[in-house]
Design a protein around this nucleic acid. Structure first.
Length: 111
DNA sequence: ATCGTGACCTGGA
DNA sequence: CTCCAGGCCACGA
């Protein structure tokens, strides 16, 4: 049984769970890794459906601008706090450098 | 099967 | 630089 058999939602959660600390991925990146580069929207929907006690590091998933899209009550502050705790630095605009913290993917050598 | 929705992305003015 | 509009995909009812 592999994640490829699971629903798009399961794949997204699995991919996000593979993001190492100190790195961040974009919705489009996760969507592409999940198999649908155009389903970035759905990725956000999946994270929005995650429970408050989820083991998925949804905080490492941000938008294309490198900034947080989490508008949810407290989640925005929480997300940035968690990312900064991992060593990620945010710009004055509240955005981080994707070219520096951008995730490369679930490592092809692990396949 | 259809309809509506969404933590998006891209392009144009 | 900012603002507006469209398109795309997956999921629930």
């Amino acid at each position: 049984m592999s994640i490829q058999n699971a629903s798009f939602r399961q794949r997204v959660m699995a991919l996000v769970a593979q993001i190492p600390a100190g790195q961040v991925a974009t919705y489009g990146q996760i969507a592409a890794l999940a198999g649908s580069p155009r389903a970035a929207r759905q990725v956000g929907g999946v994270l929005s459906a995650l429970p408050p006690d989820t083991a998925v590091p949804w905080q490492r998933v941000i938008n294309r601008q490198g900034s947080l899209s989490t508008w949810r009550k407290g989640c925005g502050e929480l997300q940035q706090a968690l990312l900064e705790a991992e060593g990620i630095v945010f710009d004055a605009s509240g955005a981080c450098d994707l070219s520096c913290y951008g995730w490369s993917g679930p490592l092809p050598a692990s396949e």
